[in-house]
Design a protein around this nucleic acid. Structure first.
Length: 496
RNA sequence: GCGGGUGUAACUCAGUUGGUAGAGUGUCAGCUUCCCAAGCUGAAUGUCGCGGGUUCGAGUCCCGUCUCCCGCUCCA
């Protein structure tokens, strides 16, 4: 990683704090790992990103909106596979610092070693006063399986084996060098109701998608939509990541912008390609540099448990390429599982073909926080002028926190009053900023730094003909516009 | 979670062998200023990440803890 690029991220983090885009969560208490707060400018930017997505995705005849609750029935996560796939006991080798999932480690052992482990397990059982002989009476194959499961599922078994130096590190060959197994449950757990009873455990959703799947029937009923159609949702999701890193990129609380598109099986590949291309184009349409974007298809053996095909839309951050959106062909996995677990029929009757089927699902899943960060990084530029460097955020006007700043050239001859009136007038339709302090050049720079696309100045000519100057953030060129026409002028620029 | 680095004013940082904190930028007020960080005058802001310890005395030494950064690991 180039050092100057790393500095770029540091500068953006610093700017974000200084100007109020992003603050560290609970900062006065020294922060909370992996959590960030959006300040006055950040929340505008985030809203604009989400609004742009919402309009692109749901202002169309075949996609409906939804806002499902964050807490869902615990069975949802059993059906989705998250309970199973989100809890992996792991250990580190103290010698070489390698980390293993216990089941993977056990898988890597040959039969000889497994037999040793099984024998030791029999002794262990006897020591505990259980029937080790009965265990040994089982067929060898079964012994290995039972002992393996015990090793993976019970930390005390693992620890005992480890102490007996039966467990070897696949990387450095050390024995007895493992840490105590730790369970990494990536789902946040909490309790429904005031009693912390194990029956009351629920999870904070690790993805918004399941809220869509469980509402598939409700939405199609309520809206009379016919397959193919989609359901879109924006909302918070939570994952207890082992490590957070890279500013907003990997956080424990984040916001997703997801759409699940239900299609007839057999047409899924076609829809997959179509949504993939549309989603890439969305980022480009909102100002992101084409050369900083790429498609990264997942290899078949790296696919998630629910997916038949997957591609990431990646952005080239200062720390490298990172996923900002994933497009998955989730097949009928989720609906089928929910049908199975809930006992409620989720089949769709296709009137046209007179067929009953469980629809396939094409998922577009974008990170709102990651997208915001990509837009922020992409917009950031230090422009070399003759005698200085101008820091400017070249946001697409649609995304910019402030659309315009009203800046009276000087604070006299009534220019500030006219400016204030203009500001109040524009404020009815646009998020605008007013500033009459100091030199106008200084004020332009301040607005450049937060990405305000237009600077409107009131000058002596305004007093005579009711026109103001509009200065373009990127070119710094100015044009005169009549005050009456300003609203239309801004609307035009923002609708592009 | 492991290893390395880091944490001093809003930001970027300085702080000499331990003697109770400075600079630049920014911010604010005033003057000046008819278009791109101008100038002048003045002002505010820190229990030096947090908690212990050593010491007559700790930003400076020791221990713990937390944050952030880099690497490893993880990433359904």
């Amino acid at each position: 990683m180039a050092k100057n690029q790393q500095n770029t991220l540091e500068k953006i983090v610093s700017l974000s704090k200084r100007r109020g885009f992003v603050f560290q969560s609970s900062e006065i208490y020294s922060g909370l790992n992996g959590c960030w707060d959006y300040g006055p400018l950040g929340v505008e930017l985030l809203r604009n990103v989400k609004d742009a997505w919402w309009k692109a995705m749901t202002y169309r005849e075949d996609v409906e909106g939804l806002d499902a609750s964050i807490l869902m029935h615990p069975r949802v996560w059993e059906a989705s596979g998250h309970v199973e796939n989100f809890t992996d006991p792991m250990v580190d080798c103290k010698q070489c610092k390698s980390r293993y999932r216990l089941d993977v480690l056990y898988e890597s052992y040959n039969e000889k070693r497994r037999k040793k482990i099984a024998d030791a397990y029999a002794v262990l059982l006897t020591d505990k006063g259980e029937d080790g002989e009965a265990f040994k009476a089982q067929p060898r194959e079964q012994q290995l399986e039972v002992a393996g499961d015990a090793l993976v599922d019970h930390a005390e078994v693992f620890n005992a084996m480890n102490e007996k130096e039966l467990l070897v590190c696949a990387n450095c060959g050390s024995t007895g060098s493992f840490t105590v197994p730790r369970k990494f449950n990536l789902m946040f757990k909490t309790f429904v109701g005031p009693v912390e009873d194990s029956n009351a455990v629920v999870f904070l959703r690790p993805e918004t998608a399941q809220g869509i799947f469980v509402n598939f029937g409700n939405v199609s009923q309520a809206t009379r939509q016919k397959v193919p159609f989609g359901i879109a949702q924006i909302g918070k999701a939570f994952r207890n990541e082992i490590n957070t890193k890279n500013f907003l990129f990997r956080t424990r609380e984040f916001e997703q912008m997801e759409m699940q598109f239900f299609v007839k099986p057999g047409t899924d590949d076609e829809w997959y390609e179509q949504w993939r291309d549309m989603r890439l184009q969305w980022f480009i349409d909102h100002g992101m540099k084409k050369e900083k974007l790429r498609m990264h298809p997942h290899a078949d053996d790296k696919l998630a448990h629910y997916a038949k095909a997957a591609v990431d839309i990646e952005y080239e951050f200062p720390f490298g390429w990172g996923e900002i959106e994933g497009i998955h062909n989730r097949t009928d996995f989720d609906l089928r599982r929910h049908q199975e677990f809930s006992g409620k029929g989720l089949e769709y009757f296709d009137q046209e073909s007179q067929e009953k089927y469980i629809p396939y699902v094409i998922e577009t899943s974008a990170g709102a926080s990651r997208s915001l960060m990509a837009f922020l990084v992409d917009a950031y530029e230090e422009e070399e002028l003759e005698k200085e460097t101008r820091t400017v955020l070249r946001f697409h006007p649609k995304l910019a926190p402030f659309k315009a700043a009203v800046l009276p050239l000087v604070k006299r001859d009534g220019m500030d009053e006219i400016g204030m009136k203009l500001y109040r007038d524009l404020q009815k339709d646009f998020k605008v900023f007013y500033d009459d302090s100091g030199s106008v050049g200084r004020r332009y720079r301040r607005q450049d730094e937060i990405g305000t696309p237009f600077g409107i100045t009131v000058d002596s000519e305004t007093l005579e003909d009711q026109t103001v100057t509009v200065r373009d953030r990127d070119s710094m060129q100015q044009e005169r516009v009549s005050m009456d026409a300003l609203r239309g002028y801004l609307s035009d620029k923002l609708s592009v």
